[in-house]
Amino acid sequence: MRTRNALAPVLALTAALALAGCSSGASPTSSPTTPAGNPVAGSWGQENTGKPSITIAEDGSFNGTDGCNSMAGHGKVAGDRFELGAFRITLMACKGVDTWLSRAASASRAGDTLTLFDKGGTQIGTLDKR
């Protein structure tokens, strides 16, 4: 029995060293499969009632408002554009509010301006960086 107890620390150390050897030592951000980043990440638009705004995270999740309805979803980077994909949106009727943002399908950034496009690729509006 004494031999078995004496081997336990040696086996544990050997296992730990073997597992450490499997690590590349590279940080997750240096992985060649990690995307270069989300070119449209950030907050865009105005926070005023009746004005459109959207916040897009690095991971592609987003939320915002078209000035009336709340929206949320998860998109993906496609080249230099961001594809919003399908998203959830409330369907309230708001008198006098232009709900153009609810038709957005993709976005691209030029400096501090986010340009949004509908499914057909037609520009439907712009939002400024907040």
Rank of each mutant, 00 (worst) to 15 (best):
M1V: 13
N5T: 10
A8H: 15
P9A: 02
V10L: 15
V10H: 14
A12E: 08
T14V: 02
A15S: 07
L17K: 15
A18G: 09
A18D: 02
A20R: 00
A20Y: 00
A20L: 03
G21M: 06
C22N: 06
S24E: 05
S24Y: 01
P28Q: 03
S30I: 01
S30Q: 01
T33D: 12
P39M: 14
A41P: 01
W44Q: 13
G45L: 14
Q46S: 14
T49Y: 03
K51T: 15
A57N: 05
S61N: 14
N63Y: 15
D66N: 09
D66E: 14
A72D: 05
G73A: 14
G75E: 00
K76F: 02
V77A: 00
G79E: 07
D80G: 08
R81Q: 09
R81I: 13
R81D: 11
E83M: 03
L84I: 01
G85A: 07
F87M: 05
M92A: 15
G96F: 09
V97S: 09
T99R: 11
L101G: 02
S102A: 08
R103W: 03
A107W: 08
S108N: 07
A110H: 03
D112T: 04
L114G: 05
F117E: 10
G120F: 03
T122E: 12
